[in-house]
């Protein structure tokens, strides 16, 4: 029953994504476009060829980032953890651009394949610099480690991009960070990886909870902290890598979603991850739809929308942290 409200919200967001835009499509017409497609009806073409891929991209990317945020916050015991803020997006950007620089190639599949090693390296790096190995990932430390890693990687990205036009083209295409080019991205492959990541996340959840009790207690319960942490980082990499390959760099979604999800799920991590997936998809779709409507016919990239909403949420969470819990 707990799922009823999040699912209803998601359905609403999905319908809004299909219906709203420069040309709004009435709901019965959406139904016809999906069930009885008529090639001569322009509204049907808008729904089926433009907005449906966008919806699927938003579902996959939003759910992945919501789940990744939930796992990162549990792993680091830090309410300000978010894959985008922690430099995972920048890591993906770096390997994508480096690949384009060295190989001089650029297409959707290539971008997708390259984003994973970068995401993996960055999530390992930020976890290590932020004190994760010792189990001391305080909010200030982890956020600053993310900022430092982000700054370093993005400076290198700018340096590469400015020297090689091919790299610039690839970067522009990827960093557009929107769901608008969903139909030229490897949606199916990435959704599969995201689904695998989601499955692993649910399997890993009870052990992560044991780890959150403290590594001594976790060992007593028969889990090995190092392995669980590596497993969790691998899951974060799969989910974030898939999301950035579909939608470009999107930050703050993984930050906002888990606290909302916790209100419904309570503190059972498995539930929290499932609800985070639903809320993540809902918020990303709504942000994307709002971005299309606010300054129509121009569009605000969904990555900018999530940052504009997410930065105040970051401040709000930071304010509520007790000074003793900051380090």
């Amino acid at each position: 029953m707990r799922f009823a409200f999040p699912v209803l919200l998601l359905v609403f967001a999905a319908i809004a994504t299909l219906a709203a835009g420069v040309r709004s499509v009435p709901v019965p017409e959406i139904w016809h476009a999906l069930t009885a497609f008529d090639q001569t009806n322009p509204l049907h073409i808008v729904v089926r060829d433009i907005r449906l891929p966008r919806l699927i991209a938003g579902l996959a990317a939003g759910a992945s980032l919501g789940m990744a945020g939930s796992i990162m916050q549990s792993l680091t015991r830090n309410p300000l953890a978010d894959p985008g803020l922690m430099g995972v997006n920048a890591g993906a950007a770096f390997t994508i651009v480096l690949g384009a620089f060295l190989l001089g190639r650029a297409d959707g599949g290539f971008i997708a394949a390259l984003s994973f090693p970068g995401a993996a390296l960055a999530s390992l790096g930020v976890f290590a610099i932020g004190g994760g190995v010792r189990g001391e990932t305080g909010p200030v430390r982890l956020t600053l480690a993310g900022i430092a890693l982000n700054a370093l990687l993005m400076s290198l990205v700018s340096a590469i991009v400015l020297t090689r036009t091919e790299a610039l083209e690839v970067f522009r295409f990827w960093a557009a960070g929107s769901l608008a080019q969903a139909n030229v991205r490897p949606l199916l492959e990435m959704s599969t990886i995201a689904a695998l990541g989601a499955g692993s996340a649910l399997l890993l959840a009870p052990r992560l909870e044991a780890l959150a009790l403290g590594s001594g207690l976790a060992k007593g319960l028969g889990t090995r902290p190092g392995r669980i942490q590596l497993g969790a980082l691998a899951v974060v990499t799969m989910l974030t890598g898939a999301a950035v390959s579909i939608a470009g760099p999107i930050a703050f979604l993984g930050l906002m979603v888990p606290p909302l999800a916790r209100r419904i799920s309570g503190h059972t991590l498995r539930f929290e991850i499932m609800i985070s997936a639903l809320f993540g998809a809902t918020i990303l779709l709504l942000a994307d739809t709002a971005g299309r409507l606010l300054i129509a016919p121009a569009e605000i990239r969904v990555g900018i929308m999530t940052a504009l909403i997410g930065a105040p949420v970051f401040i709000w969470i930071a304010r509520r942290l007790r000074p003793g819990a900051l380090t």
């Binding site: 703050f252 997410g310 930065a311 970051f314 930071a318 900051l326």
Partner: peptide
Amino acid sequence: TLILVGLGVGF
């Protein structure tokens, strides 16, 4: 807190 809130304002 100043530093964290400042980071948020910067974002």
